[in-house]
Computed example of a mutant assay.
Amino acid sequence: MRVLVASLLLAAVAGCGLRPASSFVPPVEPGSIKPLPALVGTQVRVTSKEFTEQLVLGKIAVVALTAAGADVIDQTNVQGSVNARASLIRGDADLMWEYTGTGWITYLGQSTPIPDPIKQYEAVRDLDLRRNGIVWLPPAPLNNSYSIGTTRATAEKWGLKTISDMTKIPVAQRTYCVDQETFGRDDGFLGMLKGYGLTYGKDVLASNIRRMSTGVLYSAIAGGQCAMGMVTTTDGRLAALDLVLLEDDRKFFPLYNAAVTMRRQLADAHPEIAKIFAPISAKLTDDVIRGLNAKVDVDGGVPVLVARDWLRSQGFVR
């Protein structure tokens, strides 16, 4: 029966790209995560954004909290950072993984990122709690930052090693693939151009920007639809498509360490949630999350099953 359910889930996912079935939670047995009396029966609404890494992290939270005895409502796969965050602020959701850089710049409106990861975390933690009543748990080592990616052939042709080297490509051939959300953000594409002294419309022509979903962006770069593209450093497709990351030589992009965030009401009522996620977060390095992302985007895995299998491999559940 379990195989049949998984097969049906795979079919559902195959029909809608990277989107998972919304609420299927595979059965697990306690490992190092055991049912906690204080959490049993407590409703926890878990949300996430729609891209692969967020789906995997969201499902890790769903499975872990379920194993701990919570009554989990799966609200993952919300389109757009702002929409997912808004559900947390409004009280329509209780918990989600977020990134320190996104919290600091996009949500809290701070223009200057803090280069030290601990200080950046502490700053966003304190300000978000004070302003919005959102609690940030200690972050994972994984840093899902931005960079510019290109094919190995393009990098060799123009001698591209750093983001500053983009100017080696003639303006007419300086084409970019960029996802819709990242394009206009201060910590995204237009902000990056400004940070590297390039003028949009002159040094980078508007007609040379191809905006697209993250689901097709990496294959578009690999397929030559653009010379370069805005990518994230923990994406599993980088290695599979042999894409080269250009060094952020001006240190423009903020740190984006992932951390569990939740409403203060939930955190105050259930401090045991922090203890559930502390060992999970500690194991989520760049290499680990890149591998989990690849299991979805390259191997065609289902996010919730990828999350469950990883939690099993680490002994959190059985």
Rank of each mutant, 00 (worst) to 15 (best):
G291I: 08
G191C: 04
H270R: 14
A227E: 15
L217T: 02
F277M: 08
G188D: 02
E181S: 05
K275M: 03
P254C: 11
F253D: 02
G223W: 01
H270S: 07
G223D: 08
I209C: 00
D268P: 00
A239H: 12
L245Y: 08
G188L: 04
L255D: 00
D187F: 05
M228D: 03
T232I: 09
S219H: 08
V288P: 13
V288K: 14
G229S: 06
A278F: 01
A222I: 03
V231T: 14
P254K: 10
L205R: 11
I280A: 14
G184W: 06
G224C: 03
N208S: 14
M230A: 08
G184F: 05
F189L: 13
I209W: 03
E181A: 11
P271D: 07
I289A: 01
Q265I: 12
C226A: 15
A278Q: 08
T261G: 14
E247G: 01
F252H: 13
A278C: 00
D179L: 07
G229R: 06
Y200S: 05
G236A: 10
Q225A: 01
A258K: 10
F253E: 01
D235V: 03
S213G: 04
L198W: 06
P279N: 07
C226S: 15
A220G: 01
L255F: 00
M228P: 02
P271R: 09
S281C: 10
L246Y: 11
A239K: 15
G191F: 08
M228Q: 13
V178M: 09
K275R: 13
L243S: 03
V231P: 05
R290V: 02
R263C: 02
M192L: 06
M192I: 00
L245I: 13
I209R: 00
G197P: 08
E181W: 06
V244G: 05
K275G: 00
M230C: 05
L255W: 00
N257F: 05
I280K: 14
R210Q: 14
A258I: 10
G188M: 04
N257Q: 15
G215S: 12
T182N: 14
Y218A: 09
L238R: 08
Y196K: 08
D287L: 14
A239L: 11
R210H: 14
V244N: 03
A240N: 10
L255Q: 06
Q225K: 04
D179F: 08
F252R: 12
L198M: 15
F277L: 07
R250M: 04
D179E: 13
Y196V: 06
H270V: 06
R290G: 09
R210V: 15
L238G: 12
H270K: 15
I221L: 03
R263W: 02
L217I: 02
G223N: 11
F189E: 10
L245A: 12
F277V: 04
V216F: 08
M192A: 05
V216T: 13
D187N: 08
R264F: 02
R237F: 09
M192W: 04
G291A: 07
G236N: 10
L205T: 01
M192F: 03
M228F: 13
I280N: 15
P279H: 10
M262K: 09
E272W: 04
A278K: 07
M230L: 15
V178E: 11
T232V: 09
C226H: 12
L246Q: 07
G195N: 06
I209Y: 00
K251G: 04
G188I: 02
E247H: 06
T261S: 15
A239R: 15
F277S: 10
R237H: 11
M262P: 11
L198K: 05
F183S: 09
